[in-house]
Nucleic acid binder design. Structure first.
Length: 876
RNA sequence: GGGAGUAUAGCUCAGCUGGUUCAGAGCAUCUGCCUUACAAGCAGAGGGUCCGGGGUUCGAAUCCCUGUGCUCCCACCA
C-alpha cells in the first residue's frame, strides 16, 4: 500500500472514531473484570469546549484508555451540568433579545423556553469532545436535570431536612442584583477596584458639632441605624453615652454606640452602621439590637426607604448623593481609595450583601468524614500540596446557602400551608399528607399548598454526580452502583476543589458511606505564553477545534500533555501542537521505513541485527517499567516524554538505523519479526496518548479483521532486562558519537569509511563491533597493543581509540585538544584527591562513597597517563 | 491582614531518603548537512553564582534560618 511521507491526521481521525463507536468499544456494563471508573466533571450544558476542557479530557482519556488496555472494565461517564445561574442568565438574555421579559412569563412558560434552549444548544460540548478522541461511554450520557438525577436531589434534600441538617432562616447573603438571586460565598469573586472614600458629617443632636464618618458607600446612609466608635478612642471620650447623631440629608436620629470592633486607625475612627447592607454591621446590629432598614429592591434600585432616591439604581444614587451632600455642606472631603469589591462569578454584577430568607445546610458535622478521608489519604489528592488548603477550608466550613431565586433547577420541595408553616416532602402527594397531619385539617388539597419558588444551588445536584449517574440515590442497591462505585480517578481543576470536589466527598460519605473516588488529579490552569489566563476578552484562547483541524487530535493531545505537570499551571503555546504533530509524523515515517523492507526468508540473522535487537528489547523493557512507575504517581507528562524519547531516539535513531538493510537489500526474518513486535508494543504503549495514529498504523501492520482494535488489546508489560547490556551499549553510542565528531572536525565525508584502532582493555567489548562497523561506517576495527601515531584519538571510559588519518592529522590542533583534556583531568583528579586526603571524609562517609571516590581516582590517573603519553608522542 | 507554595539553561520543567544519574530533559538557539523513512528530518555545539546571605555537615541544588521575588488560597476594615 502506498503511503506518503507526510502524515495527514485529518484523513483518518473521524474514520477511526466512527469505527470505535460502531464497535461499541467505549461502552461498559458490569462484569467479572475489575472496574475502572471516571465520571467526567460535567461541563455547563450550554458551554463550549475551551483549552481547560481539552486538558482535563485528554488526561481522563489517557487514564481510561490505559486502564482499558490493562484489561480493566473501563467506564467513563460523560454528561453535562444544568448550571442554573449561567444557563438561566443566557435564556433570559435570549428572551430579552426577542423582546420577551422574563417577568411577563409564568414559571412554566419560562421553563419551556429554557428546555427548548437546552435541547438546541445543550451538549454541543460533548459532540466537540468526540473530535478529541474521548472514549466516553456515550450511552451513559447524563444531565443533572434528568428525571432520575433530579429525583435524587429532591430525595437527598428531604433526607437532610428530616435529619435536621437543613434549616431556613434570614441571613445576610451575597445578593446578585442582576440574576436576582442569592449566591454562595464561593460564587463571589473579589477584585481590587478604584473607588472613593467619602467623609460625611453627622451632626450631633443638640449640638453644632459633627462626627465625621468615612465610608465607601455613601448611598447606604439611608439605611444607617447607628454610628459606632471604639470605646478606647480618646477622640470620642467626651461624648455622652446617650449621644445621638443625625443621618445627613434625611436627619433621622440614630444612636452612637461603642464597640471595640471599630478600628481606631481607619478613617476618623467612626463607623456608620447599616445592618441591612453590610455583614459586619449586621453583627453589630444583632449585638446592640439595632433596627434594620433595607433600602434596596432585589434588582439593585432603591426602595421606598430610599426616600427621594427611590427607584434609582444604587450607583446612580452614589453619584447623586455625593452632589447633594456636597451642596448641603455635609461632605467633608473625598479621597481616592482602593478596596476590594465582590462580583458575581456568573453575571459579574457587584454583589450586594442582603438580608433574606434562605435555605441552609449545616456543614460542620457533614464535613468531618470528608476531612478525615483526605487527611488519612483514603482519598489521595495529586499533587498533595492541596491537602493543606483542603484542610483549612474543611475546618472552617460554614453553612451552605443552598437556595437560589431562580427557576432553572430543582425546585425546593418545601410546601407552605395556607395558615402558615410548611412541610418538606418528595412529592406534592406526600406533602399533602404531611400537611394534613400537621394542620389537623383533612380537607386540605394539593392546590392549597404553595411550593417554595426557589431552586437549589447547582452544586447541590452535582455533589451527587458520582452516585447519581449510577442512580445510586434512588436505587442504592442496584448492580451498577455496586460495581462502579467508588470511582477511581477524578480529574479536575483546583479552582473547584471546594465548590465541587469537597462536597462530592461529603455527599459520598453521607449517602453511600463510602468515598466517591480514590484519587483526585488536580490539573493546572491553562495560561498563554505570557502567563495570562486564557479568556475570551483577552482573545488569547485558541479555538480547540481549530487546533485539531490544523494539527490533528493526536497532536493537540500531545501538546496538552507535554506542558502539564500536575497542579502546575501550564503555559500553552501553539508550537507544542507542532511538536505533537511532528511526533506523529515521525511515527508515520518509521512505519513507512519498516513497511518497505523486503524479507529474505533464507537470510540468516547477522550478529549486528541480533545484538541490536537484544539491546532494544532491554531498552524497551526498562522504559516500560519506568512508564508504569510514572503512572502510579500520575506523572503523565513524564511518562509521555519517556515513550517519546524511546520511539524517537532509541527506536528510530539507533535501532532502526542499526538494522536498516543497505539500499534495496532484504532483511532477515528473525529481525523483521522482532522489529514488528517492537513496533506493536510501542504503538500499544503510545495508544492512550495518541489514539488515532496508533490505530491507523496498527491496523496497517498486519491484516486486521473488522472488529479488531488496538484500543482493546493489552498494554505491553515490562519484563526483566539486562542492565549490563544497556550500559555497554551506551559506550558503543559514545564511540559512534566520537567518530562522528572526528569526521566533522576533519571534514571527512560520511560516505568514506574509516579504520578504528582500539587499545583494548576490560572496558572494551568486541561483541559490539558489528554495530560500530555499521553505525560508524568503518572499514575495519583493529585491536592494537600500542598507541597509533598520526591518528585522531578519544577515550571512552578507560579505553583508548585511534582513527588513523595519515597525513590528514593536524598535530597542532590535536595537541591543543589533548592538553585541554589533560588540564581538565588534572583538575578533576585534584578535587578527588582533596576529598580522599580529608581524614574526616574517609572516616565518616559510607564505605561505598569512599570506594567510588577511589575508583574515580584510578580512572583519572589512567586517563592522565594516557593523555601524557599521547602528548609526548605527538610532540616528538 | 492570615496561610500555603515556589525560585535550577533563553522558555517550560525533572532532580526521591544530602555523596557517579549531579548539574539534567524537552523546546528554542547556533553550526554543518536536500545522506533513498522522515527538512514536520539528520549530525553536532553552545548555554547555569542551582534567587541573595548565613548556618548544619567530612560533604548542600537537596536540610535549617533569614532576606528578596513571584504565584495561589483564605478573610474582606468601613
Amino acid at each position: 500500500m502506498e503511503i506518503g511521507p507526510k502524515y495527514i491526521p485529518q484523513e483518518i481521525e473521524s474514520k477511526w472514531y466512527e469505527y470505535w463507536l460502531k464497535n461499541n468499544y467505549f461502552h461498559s456494563t458490569p462484569d467479572e473484570r475489575e472496574p475502572y471508573t471516571i465520571v467526567i466533571p460535567p461541563p455547563n450544558v450550554t458551554g463550549m469546549l475551551h483549552m481547560g476542557h481539552m486538558l482535563n479530557e485528554t488526561i481522563q482519556d489517557v487514564l481510561v484508555r490505559r486502564a482499558r488496555m490493562q484489561g480493566k472494565n473501563a467506564c467513563w461517564v460523560p454528561g453535562t451540568d444544568h448550571a442554573s445561574i449561567a444557563t438561566e442568565a443566557k435564556v433570559v438574555q435570549k428572551l430579552k433579545a426577542e423582546g420577551i421579559d422574563k417577568n411577563s412569563l409564568t414559571r412554566e412558560e419560562f421553563l419551556k423556553h429554557a428546555w427548548e434552549w437546552k435541547e438546541k444548544h445543550g451538549g454541543i460540548i460533548l459532540k466537540q469532545l468526540r473530535r478529541l478522541g474521548a472514549s466516553c461511554d456515550w450511552e451513559r450520557t447524563k444531565f443533572t436535570m434528568d428525571p432520575e438525577l433530579s429525583r435524587s436531589v429532591i430525595k437527598v434534600f428531604v433526607d437532610l431536612y428530616n435529619k435536621g441538617k437543613i434549616y431556613r432562616g434570614i441571613r445576610m447573603v451575597n445578593w446578585d442584583p442582576a440574576a436576582q438571586t442569592a449566591l454562595s460565598d464561593e460564587e463571589v469573586i473579589y477584585r481590587e477596584s478604584q473607588g472613593k472614600l467619602y467623609y460625611l458629617r453627622y451632626r450631633i443632636e443638640g449640638s453644632d458639632e459633627y462626627l465625621i464618618v468615612a465610608t465607601t458607600r455613601p448611598e447606604t446612609i439611608l439605611g444607617d441605624t447607628a454610628v459606632c466608635v471604639n470605646p478606647n478612642d480618646p477622640r470620642y471620650q467626651h461624648l455622652a453615652p446617650e449621644t445621638r447623631v443625625l443621618v445627613p440629608l434625611i436627619n433621622r436620629s440614630i444612636p452612637v454606640i461603642r464597640d471595640e470592633y471599630v478600628d481606631i486607625e481607619f478613617g476618623t475612627g467612626v463607623l456608620k452602621v447599616t445592618p441591612a447592607h453590610d455583614v459586619n454591621d449586621y453583627m453589630l446590629g444583632e449585638k446592640y439590637g439595632l433596627e434594620t432598614i433595607d433600602i434596596f429592591n432585589d434588582n439593585g434600585t432603591l426602595n421606598e426607604h430610599g426616600q427621594q432616591y427611590a427607584g434609582m439604581d444604587r450607583f446612580d444614587v452614589r453619584n447623586q448623593i455625593e452632589k447633594d451632600l456636597d451642596a448641603t455642606g455635609l461632605l467633608e472631603k473625598t479621597e481616592a481609595y482602593t478596596n476590594k469589591v465582590g462580583y458575581s462569578e456568573r453575571t459579574n454584577a457587584v454583589i450586594e450583601p442582603k438580608l433574606s430568607m434562605q435555605w441552609f445546610l449545616k456543614m460542620e458535622e457533614l464535613a468531618q468524614p470528608a476531612l478525615r478521608a483526605v487527611m488519612e489519604d483514603a482519598i489521595q489528592l495529586v499533587p498533595a500540596k492541596f491537602k493543606n488548603t483542603y484542610r483549612y477550608w474543611m475546618e472552617n466550613i460554614k453553612d451552605w446557602c443552598i437556595s437560589r431565586q431562580l427557576w432553572w433547577g430543582q425546585q425546593i420541595p418545601a410546601y407552605y400551608l395556607p395558615k402558615g408553616g410548611y412541610v418538606v416532602a418528595e412529592t406534592p402527594e406526600q406533602a399533602l399528607e404531611l400537611a394534613r397531619q400537621k394542620s389537623g385539617n383533612d380537607s386540605l388539597t394539593i392546590s392549597d399548598l404553595r411550593q417554595d419558588p426557589d431552586v437549589l444551588d447547582t452544586w447541590f445536584s452535582s455533589w451527587l454526580w458520582p452516585i447519581s449517574v449510577f442512580d445510586g440515590i434512588n436505587r442504592p442497591d442496584n448492580e451498577e452502583i455496586k460495581y462502579y462505585y467508588p470511582t477511581n480517578d477524578l480529574v479536575t481543576a483546583p479552582d473547584i476543589l471546594f465548590f465541587w470536589v469537597a462536597r462530592m466527598i461529603i455527599a459520598g460519605y453521607e449517602f453511600k458511606g463510602e468515598k466517591p473516588f480514590r484519587n483526585v488529579y488536580l490539573t493546572g490552569i491553562v495560561r498563554d505564553k505570557l502567563r495570562r489566563k486564557m479568556s475570551k476578552s483577552l482573545g488569547n484562547s485558541p479555538d480547540p477545534l481549530d487546533l485539531i483541524d490544523r494539527y490533528g487530535a493526536d497532536g493537540v493531545r500531545l501538546a496538552m500533555l507535554l506542558c502539564s505537570a500536575a497542579g502546575n499551571d501550564l503555559l500553552f503555546d501553539e508550537s507544542l501542537c507542532e511538536q505533537g504533530r511532528n511526533f506523529g509524523n515521525k511515527i508515520w515515517n518509521a512505519y513507512r521505513l519498516v513497511n518497505g523492507w523486503q524479507v529474505d526468508e533464507k537470510l540468516e540473522q547477522s550478529d549486528n541485527n541480533r545484538i541490536a535487537t537484544e539491546w532494544f528489547d532491554a531498552m524497551l523493557n526498562r522504559t516500560l517499567a519506568q512508564i508504569e512507575a510514572d503512572f502510579t504517581e500520575y506523572r503523565i507528562s513524564e511518562a509521555l516524554m519517556k515513550i517519546y524519547k524511546l520511539f524517537w531516539d532509541e527506536f528510530s535513531g539507533w535501532y532502526l538505523e542499526a538494522i536498516k538493510p543497505a539500499y534495496q537489500c532484504p532483511i532477515d526474518r528473525p529481525t523483521i519479526d522482532a522489529v514488528r513486535g517492537f513496533f506493536d508494543k510501542l504503538l500499544r504503549t503510545l495508544h492512550p496518548f495518541m489514539p488515532f495514529i496508533t490505530e491507523e498504523i496498527w491496523q496497517h501492520m498486519s491484516e486486521r479483521r473488522d472488529g479488531e482494535s488496538i484500543m482493546i488489546v493489552r498494554l505491553p508489560e515490562a519484563k526483566p532486562y539486562d542492565e549490563t547490556l544497556l550500559e555497554r551499549f551506551d559506550q558503543v553510542k559514545e564511540v559512534i558519537s566520537a567518530l562522528r565528531n572526528i569526521r566533522k572536525e576533519h571534514n571527512l565525508p560520511n560516505k568514506d569509511t574509516l579504520e578504528l584502532c582500539v587499545l583494548a582493555d576490560s572496558n572494551f567489548h568486541p561483541e559490539f563491533n558489528p554495530i560500530l562497523m555499521k553505525m560508524g561506517n568503518l572499514s575495519a576495527i583493529r585491536t592494537v597493543d600500542a598507541k597509533c601515531s598520526d591518528a585522531a584519538t578519544f577515550m571512552v571510559k578507560t579505553t583508548e581509540y585511534f582513527v588513523p588519518l595519515n597525513d590528514k592529522i593536524d598535530t597542532e590542533e590535536e595537541l591543543k585538544k589533548l592538553k585541554a583534556d589533560l588540564t581538565y583531568m588534572e583538575g578533576f583528579l585534584a578535587s578527588v584527591l582533596k576529598k580522599l586526603s580529608n581524614e574526616r571524609f574517609v572516616q565518616n562517609a559510607p564505605a561505598k562513597v569512599v570506594e567510588t571516590e577511589r575508583a574515580k581516582q584510578n580512572d583519572a590517573e589512567a586517563k592522565i597517563k594516557a593523555l601524557q603519553e599521547r602528548i609526548a608522542q605527538l610532540s616528538k
